[in-house]
């Protein structure tokens, strides 16, 4: 079985998390990194927006600042995601272009990697299914959102798996006109989004999801996960990107 470097569940702030994903791509482009899977959490909790979204259009920045919630622009497209420290796990997978897990067709590519999440949910006793373009659903409700970019001769896919969901908090963070927040809207979101704890009706712990993701990705992608860490060069690049790119207003408010 093909071996992947596996960077097991770590906690970083938003800037470091996004910088690390890109640093791995840059190292891989130079031939200095092998295919990699990471699991990570966000502390402080943070909202990430898609690369084509407007920060002020999507995020109530003042509310986030008052609550100590970070906000960041991703290098990937897609929508705004709230990464609650207690309520979700994020993964990223970075592979070179042309890898068997990176078919040319983008939808095939999402389907393949999202297979790891579907498998992980199976380990938790949940029947999930890939929902094109970039979601994994349970019973018709979204439980995982994913986003991919292809650059630096690599494919990066990262995504979130919801363990818990606080719809009221989500509405406070995302810019929804206050007058539009009605019971109906909250009910609508509950019809469209779910979480592992909602489905299983028990207090599933982060560590249980972590274990399921490790099993799910290795089985679905037929890879052997070898515990690893960032090289010192990757760490240095990540620190530089965090400082010079991901934490800057130029980047985060560029659209």
């Amino acid at each position: 079985m093909e071996e992947f470097r596996f960077i097991d569940l770590e906690t970083h702030n938003a800037y470091q998390n996004m910088a690390t994903d890109e640093a791995i791509m840059l190292a891989m482009k130079e031939g200095n990194a092998s295919p990699t899977l990471r699991l990570y959490r966000w502390k402080p909790s943070a909202v990430s927006i898609g690369t084509f979204q407007g920060m002020l259009d999507e995020v109530d920045v003042e509310f986030c600042q008052s609550r100590g919630i970070d906000f960041i622009r991703r290098i990937t497209g897609g929508g705004a995601v709230y990464h609650d420290y207690e309520g979700e796990v994020t993964y990223s997978i970075i592979i070179p272009k042309g890898h068997r897990l990176a078919p040319n067709d983008i939808l095939d590519s999402y389907r393949l990697i999202c297979g790891g999440i579907v498998e992980a949910l199976g380990h938790l006793g949940i029947r999930g299914e890939f929902k094109p373009i970039n979601d994994v659903d349970v019973g018709g409700k979204k439980i995982s959102g994913n986003a991919m970019t292809r650059r630096h001769d690599c494919v990066l896919q990262h995504g979130t798996i919801l363990l818990d969901l606080d719809v009221n908090l989500m509405f406070s963070i995302l810019k929804v006109p206050q007058e539009k927040i009605s019971d109906k809207m909250i009910a609508d979101v509950r019809e469209r989004v779910t979480s592992i704890r909602d489905v299983l009706k028990r207090d599933v712990q982060i560590s249980e999801l972590q274990k399921a993701l490790i099993q799910g990705f290795s089985e679905a992608l037929e890879i052997e996960l070898a515990q690893g860490k960032l090289s010192s060069a990757e760490e240095k690049t990540a620190r530089r990107l965090a400082e010079e790119k991901y934490s800057t207003s130029e980047w985060n408010f560029s659209r």
């Binding site: 898609g50 084509f52 407007g54 259009d57 990937t76 497209g77 292809r150």
Partner: peptide, 12 residues
Amino acid sequence: IKILGDFFLHPE
């Protein structure tokens, strides 16, 4: 003009 949204575009 600015085109914004939650779509994907490769390359970005």
